[in-house]
Design a protein around this nucleic acid. Structure first.
Lengths: 196, 196
DNA sequence: TTAACAACCGTCCATTCGGTCAGTAATCAG
DNA sequence: CTGATTACTGACCGAATGGACGGTTGTTAA
């Protein structure tokens, strides 16, 4: 029962199309990918794409929303936690890395949005909300004495998530490799430094 | 003698034009910026741009080359150093941050290149050379016992420069703020961690 | 067998794209 | 004034872009 037995003519549905689209967008950039490029990659005509999705931008919206929903789910989980701020922070970082690994193509697209259109600006706004959440957590952890006080918490937060987000530049999922190991590595370096 | 007294009709020269172009490319993305967008921002016609530069791609080439030259200059300086690998590494990181701050728009553009054209692929190739240099340095520092051995040096190197490169996402130069303070912060967090 | 359903094709369109070219305008040295 | 030097304009081009639209093909449930 792996197949739910879809009705109608077989082919792409929105989900399978989105997978291909996001991958291509990440390879060539959203603006650098034309709908014809995409249609060629899919093996169908350009007009067939518009049966599944009303516009190119909608593909972008679906992708970035998926990434953002994943990140905010982790954030919500974190906030319902009991304990010190630094523990919450570590939980948030671990969760973020897991979302990033799990939804790699979508998060990748999200982190490259520039703000040229309404859709992109909305995504940037939600990203800023998330960043503020991280910064607040770092600030709190600092007042609790668990984060070094010699660096501006806002800077610390940005460096921390700069490191986390940079995973999209090189991490590629391999069969059997769990994201938890990667999360471990990130937390070790970020919290305790790379020195022996 | 601030003005070298240029001959001919006043207006943009290649350098001043490049400044505006790179800034706009960073705001909207290279592919997302048309030559007409650029001409509007410059206040001249599109064809006037082609008096200064033979193609759009040449603007990109000039920019990324400037960034890469800056980074490789620091790398060369680092290699001529005496001392332990971890000291070289810290010097390289500091130098990279300074180049990044100094040539922010150019480095920003470089770090967003996707590899769609020959120019972009050439830039990516030089970036890979630089990354390999960093990785080798981390490896050596690990065998010398100065970098934690519980994480793959390649991963450590990438997380380290992920943090460094993430500066382009939020750092904006302010009058009177030296890049050295920022380099300090980066080195503290990266080498010793954010924990108190 | 048939009707509903879902995916797809070919053609067309207005606009925008990067780029060309022949001529013009402003500055400075002599 | 003249001529060299440099910056710029306006009209234009072929190709590519995102998207519209009416019709077609293949699959499943009844």
């Amino acid at each position: 029962m792996t197949t739910p037995a879809r009705r109608g003519r077989p082919g792409y549905d929105l989900e399978s199309l989105l997978q291909v689209a996001v991958k291509l967008f990440n390879e060539r950039g959203y603006d650098g990918t034309s709908m014809e490029d995409l249609s060629r990659k899919l093996g169908i005509t350009k007009s067939a794409i518009y049966h599944h999705v009303p516009s190119k931008e909608e593909l972008l919206r679906l992708s970035v929303d998926r990434a953002l929903n994943g990140l905010f789910a982790v954030a919500a989980e974190t906030e319902s936690f009991e304990g010190k701020a630094i523990e919450k922070l570590e939980h948030l970082v671990r969760g973020s890395v897991l979302v990033l690994v799990d939804q790699l193509p979508f998060v990748t697209l999200l982190l490259r949005v520039r703000g040229n259109t309404k859709v992109e600006r909305a995504a940037l706004a939600r990203r800023r909300d998330f960043d503020r959440l991280v910064t607040d957590l770092v600030k709190q952890a600092e007042t609790e004495g668990d984060v070094r006080p010699d660096i501006d918490p806002a800077v610390t937060a940005r460096l921390l998530y700069g490191m986390v987000n940079s995973l999209i530049e090189w991490y590629r999922p391999r069969r059997g490799s769990a994201g938890t190991e990667l999360a471990d590595a990130v937390c070790k370096i970020a919290f305790d430094g790379l020195r022996a």
